[in-house]
Amino acid sequence: MSDVTIQVRDNGPYVVRGSFVVTDAEGNQFEKKDVVALCRCGHSATKPFCDGAHNREGFSSTPRAGQS
């Protein structure tokens, strides 16, 4: 596999770029894409993918690397 990057968006999703596979708890694979946004807020109707619900719900999270 090539390099994969995961960007934590302020008040939004995890944006994953690269060559990867998203697999559910039963081992089923979702459609392969080069970029996906994964829900962090828990309100998406398309989990595990982001549908923008974080905006409607007022989700707030701005973690920074190195914070515990």
Rank of each mutant, 00 (worst) to 15 (best):
M1Y: 01
M1T: 11
D3Y: 01
D3P: 04
D3A: 04
V4L: 12
V4E: 06
V4I: 15
V4P: 10
V4R: 04
V4Y: 08
T5C: 02
T5I: 02
T5E: 01
T5D: 00
I6V: 15
Q7T: 09
Q7K: 12
Q7C: 04
Q7V: 08
R9V: 05
R9E: 06
D10S: 06
N11H: 14
G12M: 04
G12H: 04
P13I: 05
P13Q: 03
P13F: 01
Y14L: 15
Y14F: 08
V15E: 12
V15K: 05
V15R: 04
V16W: 03
V16D: 01
V16F: 01
R17F: 00
R17C: 00
R17K: 06
G18I: 00
S19M: 06
S19E: 14
F20L: 13
F20R: 08
V21N: 15
V22L: 14
V22C: 12
T23K: 14
T23Y: 01
T23F: 02
T23C: 13
T23E: 15
A25W: 09
A25G: 09
E26A: 09
E26W: 00
G27A: 06
G27Q: 04
G27W: 03
N28L: 11
N28F: 07
Q29W: 02
F30V: 07
F30N: 09
F30Q: 12
E31W: 10
E31Y: 10
K32T: 14
K33H: 10
K33Q: 11
D34A: 14
D34S: 12
V35M: 05
V35S: 03
V35A: 01
V35N: 03
V36C: 15
V36D: 12
V36E: 14
A37V: 06
A37S: 15
A37R: 11
L38T: 10
C39N: 09
R40M: 04
C41E: 10
G42D: 12
G42P: 05
H43K: 13
H43N: 13
H43W: 06
H43E: 15
S44G: 13
S44M: 13
S44F: 07
S44L: 11
A45P: 03
A45C: 12
T46A: 13
T46D: 15
T46H: 14
P48E: 05
P48T: 10
P48V: 06
P48G: 04
F49V: 11
F49Y: 15
F49T: 03
F49L: 11
F49E: 02
C50L: 14
D51S: 10
G52L: 12
G52R: 07
A53N: 05
A53V: 05
A53F: 02
H54F: 10
H54N: 14
N55T: 05
N55W: 08
N55K: 14
G58E: 12
G58W: 08
G58R: 11
F59T: 03
F59L: 11
F59M: 08
F59I: 02
S60T: 13
S61M: 10
S61W: 15
S61R: 11
T62N: 13
P63Y: 03
P63E: 04
P63S: 05
P63R: 02
P63W: 02
P63M: 05
R64E: 08
A65W: 01
G66C: 04
G66K: 02
G66Y: 03
G66P: 04
Q67V: 03
Q67K: 01
S68W: 00
S68Q: 09
S68R: 08
